[in-house]
């Protein structure tokens, strides 16, 4: 348990838990959205609001960790030379990235547990048969938005990363089909919104929990395309110092 990888992942985890502002984005906001929109009928969906909302909030909390929390901390780590020193130590860049992925995974597991627990308490009734598909979608979604986050963190100044990541996160809530169906937006907005990776992520997840084919669906294919594009761009453009 004292190997370099475990030590690094452990410290990344502890540092993340210590950042209050990160907990607000990764946990408080998603749970508040879930609670509010499931209890106040602003959606007027035919299905129970909680069934519509839960996949969206799961996706949003994954995005909060991958794209917001880790992008911002990585941006600051980069500007303070942390990535440089760790990359030049025996830990190396490969294990540093692996440690971050491990820490992200553990945090997201915790987030899933919290969101699912609240959703069940509020009456969420998913098709449990879709769970394996949902997990695949979550993993691909997490990788996609980690790619986006690192694309920001690896190229922009830390302050700009913070601003852009937060702005995207806020825009994703209304325009990504998280709390409001994309279909009911004006056609032009809906057409653009449907192409966003967040919409693809939410839609694929919604299909999984509805018991429909998710991994073999157009939204999941779109999410995979985004994933490859974003991860490749992040790897190509990332500057370590």
């Amino acid at each position: 348990m004292n190997g370099p990888l475990a030590s690094q992942a452990g410290l990344e985890l502890r540092l993340t838990m210590r950042r209050g502002e990160s907990l607000v984005v990764t946990l408080v906001i998603p749970l508040l959205l879930l609670g509010f929109f499931s209890q106040v009928d602003v959606l007027g969906t035919s299905e129970p609001a909680i069934d519509f909302l839960t996949p969206g909030v799961i996706a949003l909390s994954i995005i909060a960790t991958s794209m917001v929390s880790f992008a911002i901390s990585t941006g600051y780590d980069r500007s303070y030379g942390v990535l440089k020193l760790l990359g030049g130590s025996p830990l190396g860049r490969g294990r540093l990235i692996l440690a971050k992925i491990l820490a992200i995974g553990i945090i997201q597991f915790g987030q899933l547990a919290c969101v699912v627990a609240l959703a069940l308490a509020l009456g969420w009734a998913p098709d449990w048969g879709g769970t394996p598909q949902a997990l695949v979608v979550v993993v691909v979604g997490s990788a996609t938005f980690t790619g986006l986050g690192l694309l920001l963190a690896g190229t922009l100044r830390a302050e700009a990363t913070l601003a852009v990541a937060n702005l995207l996160f806020i825009l994703f809530i209304p325009f990504g089909g998280v709390v409001y169906p994309v279909d009911r937006m004006p056609t032009l907005v809906a057409d653009v919104a449907k192409l966003l990776p967040v919409t693809a992520f939410v839609e694929a997840l919604r299909r999984a929990f509805a018991g429909s084919p998710a991994v073999l669906s157009a939204p999941f294919a779109l999410l995979c395309l985004w994933g490859v594009a974003l991860v490749v761009s992040a790897v190509r453009t990332f500057k370590w110092e």
Binding site: L15, K84, L85, P90
Partner: peptide, 16 residues
């Protein structure tokens, strides 16, 4: 790297 130690000109350490 196992036999070398280094101190950057500035920073290199997690703020928190």
């Amino acid at each position: 790297k196992q036999r070398m130690g280094l101190m950057l000109q500035s920073g290199g350490i997690y703020n928190g």
